[in-house]
Design a protein around this nucleic acid. Structure first.
Lengths: 156, 156
DNA sequence: GTTCGTGCAAATACTTTGCACGTAT
DNA sequence: ATACGTGCAAAGTATTTGCACGAAC
């Protein structure tokens, strides 16, 4: 369905993830490994239902409640991040620093999200501007979120 | 509590809103007017509960279900837009083209959002880049969303 | 008088939690 | 042995909807 995401650590995602689990004294269980595998095989953030489907397609058992619970842990450990679209459905993807910094094409009709990258030159001038603005506002900046909102090719 | 938002149409917000209602063959009722008044008096997007409180503070009756329903209409007519924070609570503000284009400081701890503006020069180079990217991806770009994620001054 | 708006209460959708059992250290 | 993970079903929370009544055109 979707081509593999061209990630930063072309290959050893699980190694890096395992390291983060250890650092936080958490266990990298097989279910958590499964979730990471599913996410890293996607070129876009996934909804709960999509993750469940892909897990069962892979003949793995994964209860919805366990998925929710594991996503909380994965987020705390810094492995996945939640993405907000234009609907109320939670979507998750691997952390920016695993996947590589990128942005999203968000379809306001169907809510689907696709990953995109913007040129480093724009990215860095943006960064320095945002840093100044944050400082000026007494805000501690962790990251920025830049999304393109519109219609995906399927929604005209 | 909050200073008035420095909007584009310094003054006649209701006139412009009324025009948009007429264009869409919708009625600009007193409740809808109330919602617009509440939103335009705020310097940040508001949650449902905040809008209800401010309405009742103004001694106005506004049922929660009517608020939700009216927000759907207000959004369809192009008067308000929904803002997505880092939680699941819907927040609304007047449309970008009424308020003037701006961005958000989003607190990942408490979810609160504050409005900020970035320099026109950055904004326009960003715009032209995003336009190219969208075209290249077969995506019909309507708007962009740029948020600064971090901790607000109250959340350290 | 017919169409649209409103309030109330019930329903829905997504997410979280309690509990009993299984797995890892 | 003890602490943590998992599945199931129940509970929560934000939002939506059905219905009867009221207001606007």
């Amino acid at each position: 369905m979707a081509k593999k995401h061209p990630n930063k650590l072309s290959g050893d995602v699980h190694g890096e993830v395992a390291r983060r689990f250890i650092k936080h004294d958490q266990r990298y269980t097989s279910q958590r490994r499964l979730i990471v595998t599913v996410l890293s095989a996607s070129d876009r953030p996934l909804m709960i239902q999509q993750m469940l489907k892909r897990s069962s397609d892979a003949k793995k058992v994964l209860a919805q409640s366990s998925l929710y619970r594991n996503l909380v842990v994965l987020e705390a450990v810094g492995v996945v991040q939640r993405i907000f679209s234009t609907d109320d459905v939670a979507r998750y993807e691997l952390n920016d620093d695993i996947l590589g910094h990128h942005h999203h094409l968000v379809c306001s009709k169907c809510g689907d999200i696709r990953d995109v990258r913007i040129p480093d030159s724009i990215e860095s001038s943006l960064d320095s501007t945002l840093t100044k603005i944050a400082k000026h506002s007494g805000f501690q900046l962790d990251q920025h979120r830049l999304d393109l909102i519109g219609r995906c090719s399927r929604c005209v």
